[in-house]
Amino acid sequence: MTMDLIIEAIVALCIVIGGVFTLVGSIGLIKLNRPMPRLHAPTKASTLGVGAILIASMLLSFWRGEGSLHELLITGFLFVTAPISALFIAKVHLHRGEMAQDPPPPPMDDVWATLDTPPEDLEAGRPDQPSATPAE
């Protein structure tokens, strides 16, 4: 009985933590004022929130005796893919010139790699030069 109550309290705490972190991530997404800072809030906070909710689900299923580590799959997948999608979105901001200030010149090359269009693409007339795609 006491053990029941302790497990229930831990699961409830994990669920509440997950909900609060998800809410904080979305508030950051709506409240921060520039595109690049806006990237921080959801990619970190929402991943943590989903992680806490999945931990709660795992704990509960183990306590009921039908436990499985399925949820670890989702947790691992989200933890691996969240930085990758954040990097891709940051590259989109960099590419389309949507940042508050221009990036510093790269230390070794002439231009940043995402702005470096190969000559054969220029001949083919690809519309991906940053000057050809003004920010919306």
Partner: peptide
């Protein structure tokens, strides 16, 4: 306002 924001919002929407 920007395209990157919309992509980020879609990503967050699927995580939620």
């Amino acid at each position: 306002p920007t395209l990157g924001d919309r992509v980020l919002a879609l990503d967050t929407l699927s995580i939620n």
